[in-house]
Write a protein that binds this DNA or RNA. Sequence first.
DNA 1: ATCTATATTTCGAGG
DNA 2: CCTCGAAGTATAGAT
Lengths: 219, 219
Amino acid sequence: MGVRLVIARCSVDYVGRLTAHLPQAVRLLLVKSDGSVSIHADDRAYKPLMWMSPPCSTLYGEDVWTVTNKAGEQLLITVDEVLSDVAHELGTDPGLVKDGVEKQLQELLADQCHVLGEGFTLVQREYFTDIGPVDLLCKDGSGAHVLVEIKRHAEIDAVEQLTRYLQRVSTVLGEVQGILAAQSFKPQAKVLAADRGIICVQVDYDALRGMESTRPTLF
Amino acid sequence: MGVRLVIARCSVDYVGRLTAHLPQAVRLLLVKSDGSVSIHADDRAYKPLMWMSPPCSTLYGEDVWTVTNKAGEQLLITVDEVLSDVAHELGTDPGLVKDGVEKQLQELLADQCHVLGEGFTLVQREYFTDIGPVDLLCKDGSGAHVLVEIKRHAEIDAVEQLTRYLQRVSTVLGEVQGILAAQSFKPQAKVLAADRGIICVQVDYDALRGMESTRPTLF
DNA sequence: ATCTATATTTCGAGG
DNA sequence: CCTCGAAGTATAGAT
């Protein structure tokens, strides 16, 4: 199998969650071993003009390729002229290793919640409410509860989310302080947070990780 | 220029909003005229393993391609073996025509707002407030104002959005009823909407379009 | 330039 | 299987 790279003059129709049409033009058709098909123009790295995600199958007609998935969505590729058609074997990919996402931040802050405020201690990570889990439930130096929402980059949505949690939790724990912890903040998020009495704490991921990795050497 | 298709044994590192690493393997490198680069394995139609969105530029070293954008994010592609390297001219794409997205729904509902409730009439589409435009401003059977927010699929954000509009508009029009109209709803969105006194109306896009297209024949 | 809202979002985790 | 939240979300449009 492998990837099949076709350069072709084609027009395309998608009928599924919406209907869309691509007029005739020269494009790159990319067919992969899992059956998926994507159609690329000569710009944009991330998003194809059209695509069909796996699992799906293709019926190769005389001039029309019909790509169909289980939900009945269809990609109709009318191939008017093939300018190139090659295939290459790639093998299975070992996949990628990520670092620096929200989950890691949550783990680090759960371990080192003292960076959120003087005398902070962790009560529970992923504290569940009926409208979803709060990232951290802590107690501050005076023993009062604090809800912590963690984001890589905090936007206005994060403030709304934490506000909902605070309202919800207040019926159980009484009035609770909220902290929004993030590596960076949108200005509007800071403004809205201030308006709602929510404290914004900027955290340094690298520093947190540094502390984590160096801590064993302290003993 | 045109698209450049390289099949190569390579390893890749991304350093930017996060750090990520791809071990050595054979992959497809796709370079486009806008400078964007994407790296594909032999599966998944939509999302590349790694990418750099335009605008960005590439420095081609002896063995390493360094792709950099304005924010300083980098993609380091170590090319160990080139198995194929071809380029094709595609020209500019005429672009696609969509149908069935939120804008169309808004047009249909503006024309047929009676489906939102008994005796509803349209006052204004895209009713502007200082925090943004409300999709529809209607009057119900009793002549009271109603704000309508339209989504293809309503999530919790839509409830927050409509809530903000209702608060804003209430200072001008007084207490106003809110309606969230969508083809489908997330359960949590329905719960929050109920909590805020917002009415959820499920609409059928195809039925609306059917009425629209058949209406001329009624006369 | 920044912010807002959309997306055929995709993707993965968890109940 | 559904539901939910995150994403290097990307992308388009408006301010």
